[in-house]
């Protein structure tokens, strides 16, 4: 794992399955039984996952950097 990388999480309790993140960032999220889930938890830093987290209608996506600081949603 890259120590400079980010981590993405989807809170399954909150996700309403809108499919927005999967459409915006298909390389990072997929639908599973109607809810979104990260394809891999560890990701290289990229604006796309921030876009997805900032656009999630229920703020179910968290993007953190390597020392656990919340990067998005703001």
């Amino acid at each position: 794992m890259v120590s400079t990388g980010w981590r993405i999480e989807v809170d399954a309790e909150r996700c309403i399955g809108s499919g927005s993140c999967v459409g915006m960032a298909p390389a990072h999220f997929r639908m599973e039984s109607g809810l979104a889930t990260p394809i891999t938890t560890a990701v290289e830093p990229t604006e796309t996952v921030i876009d997805a987290a900032e656009s999630c209608p229920v703020e179910a996506i968290a993007v953190r950097d390597h020392d656990d600081t919340l990067i998005a949603p703001s």
Binding site: M24, T48, D51, E54, P57
Partner: peptide, 19 residues
């Protein structure tokens, strides 16, 4: 489509979150 769509949607998405 994304990424054009994302650019515009992010402009207003925050105002419409559940919170």
């Amino acid at each position: 489509d994304p990424p054009e769509h994302t650019r515009l949607r992010r402009l207003v998405a925050k105002a419409f979150t559940a919170r």
